[in-house]
């Protein structure tokens, strides 16, 4: 359940940003979560429901942009969709792969009131 730590970090960021902007309430929050980030979405959503209670995010609409994984093969330089860390390059079968996308874990934006 490191998802709870992730949620707490989001709350912390949102809290600081809204305090900076003197917001009373956060209406919307937009997140980016990569496919290869290691976040389990059901666990994340569960942690979210529990953690936002009595915070400025309690009533906020949460939008999660799921960023699909993308790998670059270090052997043949193929760029391909990557859904698992252990799958080889679909072109040459090599395992030396650099992750280009999918590790994202970001707070994009807030709509505050």
């Amino acid at each position: 359940m490191h998802e709870l730590s992730i949620v707490m970090s989001i709350l912390d960021i949102a809290e600081k940003e809204s305090a900076k902007n003197k917001a009373v309430q956060i209406d919307e929050i937009e997140l980016e979560i990569g496919e290869l980030s290691g976040v389990d979405m059901p666990a994340f959503d569960f942690a979210w429901q529990q953690a936002v209670k009595a915070t400025r995010l309690e009533a906020a609409v949460k939008t999660v942009n799921h960023i699909p994984g993308e790998g670059l093969c270090m052997n043949c330089e193929a760029v391909f969709p990557m859904h698992q860390l252990y799958k080889p390059c679909p072109v040459c079968g090599d395992h030396f792969i650099t992750i280009l996308k999918g590790k994202e874990l970001r707070v994009k934006s807030l709509v505050i009131n």
Binding site: I13, E17, S18, N21, K22, L31, R106, L110, V111, I112
Partner: peptide, 21 residues
């Protein structure tokens, strides 16, 4: 714990969630 109080703005946060760590 923290609290604070104060029309609708979009804030571009663009922050890595694990940044603090």
């Amino acid at each position: 714990n923290h609290s604070h109080s104060h029309g609708k703005t979009i804030v571009a946060v663009e922050k890595d969630i694990l940044q603090e760590n």
